[in-house]
């Protein structure tokens, strides 16, 4: 009985100890991964992402999505592919990087452009 009664207290303590990325009180140590962010150079969106990524990862590099051909992926443990603009603009004019067939780097595709890239690669994660 005692152990059951202590469960809620233990759960509360555990939740206080778990780091939360959103709130302050999250881990002070950066995550030990290098990130390569390919987006729209000079855009406010790129600046926002880079600031956020730099505050959480040990190394962050960036490049232009329009010029991304997979070779730049060697600069990061994880690659992020992103672009700014309204959905309709990204659909009509956003860059569509052509990745080589043997591309196998861990990659996060983001938003509309991400879904379109996944469509191009015939992935289940494509834009419906």
């Amino acid at each position: 009985m005692k152990s059951i009664a202590l469960w809620p207290l233990a759960a509360c303590l555990m939740s206080l100890l778990m780091p939360s990325a959103g709130a302050r009180g999250q881990t002070d140590q950066k995550l030990n991964l290098s990130i390569f962010y390919a987006g729209h150079p000079g855009s406010a969106r790129e600046a926002d992402f880079l600031q956020f990524l730099n505050s959480h990862f040990t190394h962050v590099d960036s490049g232009d999505l329009a010029k991304f051909d997979g070779s730049q992926a060697a600069k990061g443990d994880v690659v992020l592919l992103d672009y700014d603009g309204e959905a309709i603009d990204v659909m009509q004019h956003g860059p569509r990087p052509a990745l080589p067939g043997n591309y196998s780097r861990p990659t996060v595709t983001i938003g509309v452009v991400g879904g379109l890239i996944c469509n191009q690669l015939r992935l289940k994660t494509g834009y419906m």
Partner: peptide
Amino acid sequence: RHGNFLQWGFSSPPAQMTD
């Protein structure tokens, strides 16, 4: 996720993400 690709369907930059 499909293979080595993870699609984050949400479009907002971090400044607009919740905690």
